[in-house]
């Protein structure tokens, strides 16, 4: 299998102006993410983790440097192309689930398909299939308020998969979930990653994530501290996993 990069950053820098002082959130990050990879970005808060994550997802613009998604420079895209990219190429999963409260589980999942221009019948069938896939086939007409946190996040996962994206961006997907539910979501993401080859990029400080990630990028002070492959991690965090189980 020839490895092809789905996301590539070139000397990424981001400077925030806080009044008169300038804060460098990212100071020159070079990262290449392979298609089909399960990548976790780890780091303490304030490390630039969220900034890097948002830029990789096309949600934020760098002060200097470039982000390429599928070899396309994100900075060159206009508003319509960016919307298309967010709709078709990238699926987003949030820490706070972010389901639209006025819509049912099914409507939440079919909304991105509607944005993509799919007919309602087709979207409905696909939505039902996706919700069944994540184990909520019997809850398709429930509103988010009638679902537990874990169930809401499952709907969000199904919604992220709506338009068969190439990338799923998960921002602390287990941050608002208990241990068991969090592990179920991680497993689900891993399964989807293996089934469909979707690239998963997640910003997290959940150690449970480590065991399923192909690579872990550690960020500190706006720089990549180190990148670990799974083979290396499993030994070093063996004790943490032991504690969880």
């Amino acid at each position: 299998m020839a490895e092809q990069s789905i996301v590539r950053t070139e000397d990424l820098k981001k400077i925030y102006k806080m009044g008169s002082t300038e804060v460098e959130a990212l100071s020159g990050v070079n990262l290449e993410i392979q298609a089909g990879e399960y990548l976790s970005i780890m780091g303490p808060s304030g490390s630039g983790k969220t900034t890097l994550f948002n830029m990789v997802g096309g949600l934020d613009k760098p002060t200097s440097g470039k982000v390429y998604i599928d070899e396309v420079d994100v900075a060159q895209l206009d508003a319509y192309e960016l919307a298309w990219l967010r709709c078709r190429k990238i699926g987003y999963i949030f820490q706070t689930f972010n389901l639209l409260p006025v819509m049912t589980a099914l409507e939440n999942v079919t909304l991105p398909m509607t944005f993509a221009g799919m007919s309602s019948d087709e979207a409905r069938d696909k939505g039902v299939a996706l919700l069944t896939r994540v184990g909520l086939g019997d809850r398709i007409l429930h509103k988010p308020s009638e679902l537990s946190g874990g169930q809401q996040q499952r709907v969000a996962v199904a919604r992220a998969m709506a338009n068969d994206p190439a990338i799923i961006l998960a921002d602390e997907p287990t941050g608002n979930l208990d241990l068991t539910t969090g592990r179920e979501i991680i497993e689900l993401l891993r399964e989807l990653n293996e089934e469909s080859g979707v690239t998963i990029i997640s910003a997290t400080h959940d150690m449970k994530m480590l065991s399923v990630s192909d690579r872990v990028v550690w960020i500190r002070d706006g720089k990549i501290e180190r990148i670990e492959r799974r083979e290396d991690i499993e030994i070093s965090v063996g004790t943490i996993r032991g504690k969880d189980e």
Partner: peptide, 21 residues
């Protein structure tokens, strides 16, 4: 990572998002 199925995703050009009715 080698054993993973990577679906062949054709590198279609980025298109413009449609305007909904």
């Amino acid at each position: 990572m080698q054993d993973k199925v990577v679906r062949d995703r054709t590198r279609a050009k980025i298109e413009k998002q449609i305007v909904l009715p």
